[in-house]
């Protein structure tokens, strides 16, 4: 398991990164934390001609807050998301999800931007940014643009990031009054990719659901919102009945593929269980 040969270039600015990509005659990849790219290289599943090391690009790392919300630099490492007081205050869903991301040593190098750019449908952060209604800041030849998380995930491992573009930051709107968040997943072992995971972001007043976004992992090619279930819940009193009807509504939202270990039916069942448990947890917190 040794990677094919490639050239390597370290860049220190976004402009330099984009220029390096544009000038590469073959295939180029941006290298951030490398925690998903390196296995792919070692396994020769991916074999680019050029790796552009962006890990030391100025200004792409760290967390800041403004009136428009939280800004997390794409190079912010999982461990930094996990420990950031700003994230805990302004986007606690991410703080809750971070411990589920792989293992400590992976979290020490892996970056949130890397996770979102790869867009593994089993990963935790993609569901979180979907649930948080976050936006993604993407730099390209024509400057910086932002895309809403709802429009960002396109297909399996495919996002709105075009060739030669670079994800630079994640923008999370400020929490609303009454916001309740929850993250949970069902994984065979601690740190494994989940059979199913769920990020919930809701606004609840006196057990009345004002807003809710439900984003599942591992139920399809991309992190998936359960919009029918959301619609069932919005405007209702959060209780056993509402939860049951949201669980039933998942049939309209999800159609997970079966694998050799987990059939489609089992995954669907587990998604319903997880939804029920997560909503009940919100309910408990609300009381």
């Amino acid at each position: 398991m040794k990677a094919r040969t490639f050239s390597f270039r370290r860049v220190t600015s976004v402009e330099e990164a984009l220029a390096a990509f544009a000038s590469c005659e073959g295939e180029a990849r941006f290298l951030a934390g490398g925690q998903s790219l390196l296995p792919a290289l070692n396994l020769r599943l991916d074999a680019p001609d050029l790796l552009i090391d962006i890990s030391r690009v100025e200004g792409m790392r760290g967390v800041s807050v403004s009136s428009s919300g939280l800004r997390i630099g794409a190079l912010t490492r999982h461990v930094e998301v996990l420990r950031s007081p700003l994230v805990a205050e302004h986007a606690s869903l991410l703080s809750r999800a971070a411990p589920f991301v792989a293992h400590p040593a992976i979290r020490n190098l892996g970056t949130i931007g890397g996770s979102l750019a790869l867009a593994d449908p089993a990963a935790e952060f993609p569901t979180c940014i979907l649930a948080l209604n976050a936006s993604l800041e993407i730099a390209g030849a024509n400057g910086i643009r932002t895309v809403r998380a709802d429009d960002y995930f396109r297909a399996l491992y495919e996002t709105d990031i075009g060739p030669g573009e670079l994800l630079t930051a994640i923008l999370i709107p400020p929490p609303s009054h009454g916001q309740r968040v929850h993250f949970d997943e069902l994984a065979r072992r601690r740190g494994d990719y989940a059979i199913v995971g769920l990020a919930v972001n809701a606004v609840i007043h006196d057990s009345n659901v004002k807003e809710i976004r439900l984003a599942f992992s591992s139920v399809g090619p991309i992190p998936t919102r359960a919009k029918t279930a959301e619609a069932q819940l919005i405007g209702t009193f959060l209780g056993a009945e509402g939860i049951a009807s949201a669980q039933a509504a998942l049939a309209n939202d999800l159609s997970p593929d079966g694998t050799d270990e987990v059939s489609s039916e089992t995954r669907m069942h587990l998604a319903r269980v997880l939804l029920g448990r997560s909503l009940n947890a919100l309910l408990r917190e609300d009381k």
Partner: peptide, 12 residues
């Protein structure tokens, strides 16, 4: 496995 246990329980 979880799936085999769920099958034994006739849940799936």
């Amino acid at each position: 496995t979880p799936e085999r246990i769920l099958k034994a329980l006739r849940v799936v």
